[in-house]
């Protein structure tokens, strides 16, 4: 996330223009997809492609409206953003996603915990990481062992519950 500054008046709001383009793209994909659908409307006359088409046209209209608003500078001012905490959280979620089935719930989620804590100012990973893993492991024991929720186990879980 880059640093957004409020644009001076009467200049196009480029970020909002990007949104308009994005909306138009979504609409385009929907129209393309619905064109490929067989028309199985049957007796109703309204087939599987009808509703996506209507939604797509509305999105196109909204894209135009957004572009107009962007040129007129109608969008509200955005608060300046700090990119690094955002990246830490996204990295934490991505790490959990990738490690979940390899390292197991506790370790993967412990990393997410520590990264999130870092994003909010607890910078010492050497402290937060163990806390996160122990906490996640306690959660795992409660939910996976007592409540029989299926949370992927990994080396740590197998160490304490062999065979589980």
């Amino acid at each position: 996330m880059s640093d957004f500054r409020p644009e001076p008046q009467r200049r196009p709001d480029w970020a909002a223009l990007v949104i308009a383009v994005f909306l138009a793209l979504v609409a385009g994909v929907m129209l393309w997809d619905s064109a490929r659908l067989a028309d199985l409307g049957g007796y109703s006359g309204v087939g599987p492609a009808s509703v996506p088409r209507v939604v797509a046209y509305c999105l196109l209209g909204l894209a135009g409206w957004t572009a107009l608003a962007a040129f007129r500078g109608d969008f509200p001012e955005r608060e300046p953003q700090n990119p690094s905490p955002i990246l830490w959280i996204v990295a934490g979620l991505a790490a959990q996603l990738m490690l979940l089935h390899i390292a197991g719930f506790s370790i993967a989620t412990g990393i997410l915990f520590a990264f999130t804590a870092r994003a909010f100012g607890k910078r010492n990973l050497a402290m937060t990481l163990p806390i996160g893993i122990v906490f996640a492991f306690a959660v795992w024991v409660i939910f996976a062992k007592l409540l029989m929720l299926h949370l992927p186990p990994g080396p740590l879980e197998h160490l304490f519950f062999p065979g589980g």
Binding site: K145, L146, M148, P162, G163
Partner: peptide
Amino acid sequence: LFASAIAL
């Protein structure tokens, strides 16, 4: 609950 949960 516990017994069924942690029985090896």
